[in-house]
């Protein structure tokens, strides 16, 4: 949220303020924020699991459903597609650490070429995030075509809300990455900007680990 970005993106006023722990305020705030987000997703995931198997009508995630009119709805979750999008998001975390390393070690030996190209890594991370969102858009629209809307049943409501919340977090992350990319293009990120990239990275990886939990709990466990 705004906490982290607050003072993050401008550093032309680099006063070295005294801090008790020697750590940067922004990093403490972003970890506190991540702690809070744990409870946010805990509430969403709990609701999904509580309502699992309680929908009165289909479509269902893992089971076939025959409607009273005789229409047959296959299990709606598309594991191959979601596995692919999961893979993309996991790899985005690799790109993110590469971006951070490139900014942190700019100019150091061994960080020339592609490895030191923070713009490339920031762009690929944002791209991977966008591809993930594309997969999600595809998944949502195909679900709607197959008869599952957010209003259809408890599964639809809790599924779309949970994954939609995650998608919204990814969207914020992509915007954040693009902002960093724009700064990098404009004036170049230097090792002094490590912290600014680091807090964005922490947020991004957190969104990734939330997806790791969602993928197992919602998609794989039946």
């Amino acid at each position: 949220m705004s906490t982290a970005t607050a003072a993050a993106t401008h550093d032309d006023h680099e006063h070295v303020h005294y801090t008790t722990t020697g750590l940067d305020n922004r990093k403490i705030a972003v970890w506190a924020f991540i702690g809070s987000e744990c409870m946010l997703f805990a509430s969403l995931i709990s609701t999904y699991l509580i309502y699992k198997g309680r929908s009165r009508v289909g479509p269902f995630p893992h089971e076939t459903w025959t409607s009273p009119t005789g229409e047959v709805f296959k299990p709606i979750l598309n594991i191959p597609v979601t596995s692919a999008s999961t893979f993309v998001l996991l790899m985005s975390s690799l790109f993110m650490v590469m971006a951070l390393a490139a900014v942190e070690n700019r100019g150091k030996p061994g960080y020339g070429g592609l490895k030191g190209n923070s713009k490339f890594w920031l762009a690929t991370t944002a791209l991977a995030g966008t591809v993930f969102l594309g997969f999600q858009a595809f998944e949502f629209t195909s679900f709607v075509h197959e008869g599952l809307k957010i209003t259809t049943n408890l599964f639809g409501s809790s599924f779309f809300t949970l994954t939609g919340f995650h998608g919204a977090h990814v969207t914020v992350g992509v915007l954040w990455l693009l902002t960093l990319l724009a700064i990098d293009m404009k004036r170049g990120l230097t090792p002094k900007d490590t912290l600014v990239v680091d807090i964005c990275a922490l947020y991004w990886h957190f969104v990734d680990v939330v997806w790791i939990a969602i993928f197992t709990l919602i998609y794989l466990i039946q």
């Binding site: 009165r56 259809t152 408890l154």
Partner: peptide, 8 residues
């Protein structure tokens, strides 16, 4: 449907 008893 979160609080809709008719929907379970």
């Amino acid at each position: 449907a979160f609080y809709d008893i008719a929907k379970g």
